[in-house]
Design a protein around this nucleic acid. Structure first.
Lengths: 138, 138
DNA sequence: GATTGACTTAGACATTGTCCATTGTAGGAT
DNA sequence: ATCCTACAATGGACAATGTCTAAGTCAATC
């Protein structure tokens, strides 16, 4: 993600302090923040950044394919910057902890044509649920 | 689902007009309503039913394992009464249409032990996304 | 260093979900 | 059949998440 800013600039993205901060907050692996969590962290670095800007910027990053939107919990959307390496998610039903996981095979190819109903299927989101070791021992 | 009411009564569920109506609204295959959609349909049959009761009743049906909560869109939770036949969902990214689908194999077994990180994995939710024939031709 | 169109802001608004104090009632006991 | 009581329903306030708009600001270009 370190070269994300370069890539975005190359696509004609106007570079502002706000966008830089949002991108920095999302930097790293295994990051799965909600929009308001991103906002909270962004405010620490740039106190005057507004909620609307964070929502807008996240939406743009998703449109550009640089960040994935995932529905791992049944509440707020989470934003996953690890968009360029296919993976799925394993979620603790008790504490909400999230791990990136890599199932065998390609889940997309498990859906036969007869089950596609004429859809052009382009994407699949898999969420495994269970209890993490911490919660199991508690 | 026609025998749902019997099953619930057998479990000591107190039968009220409101619960009956919610169960009736959910009856059928390929039903994927949001809580507020369930409420809207319930009001048609029982005008004084409250939103809170619908939310409570749906929550109970989920706890009892009679209805599944699915996060197919990235907005409101949807409630799927088809809880006793394993299936996954195919969603149109454009119009939101939802189909029940049955991928090959068991998605749960595609997650190797080395990718479970000590979790006790009990469940998997798969959402395929694409464009439906209607939206493709428009 | 002026210009301009894209970006940001603050806050109102919309949608979805939860909580609580009060009122009502299903189903068992009499 | 009537009464009791624990469980359920109500309505409205509140919380959490997400969207929109009008006005002000600024990055990139010239």
């Amino acid at each position: 993600m370190s070269d994300l800013l370069e890539r975005l600039r190359g696509r004609g993205w106007r570079m502002t302090a706000q966008r830089r901060v949002v991108a920095e907050v999302l930097d790293g692996e295994h990051v799965h923040l909600t929009a308001d969590e991103v906002h909270a962290r962004a405010v620490e670095r740039l106190p005057e950044i507004s909620r609307a800007t964070v929502y807008n910027t996240l939406g743009e990053l998703v449109s550009l394919g640089e960040v994935l939107e995932v529905a791992t919990d049944h509440r707020a959307k989470r934003y996953d910057p690890n968009a360029h390496r296919p993976h799925q998610h394993l979620v603790c039903a008790h504490c909400g902890a999230i791990r990136d996981v890599h199932p065998n095979g390609n889940p997309l190819s498990d859906l036969p044509d007869s089950e596609r109903f004429g859809f052009t299927v382009s994407d699949v989101e898999v969420t495994y649920r269970g209890i993490c070791p911490n919660c199991a021992s508690a």
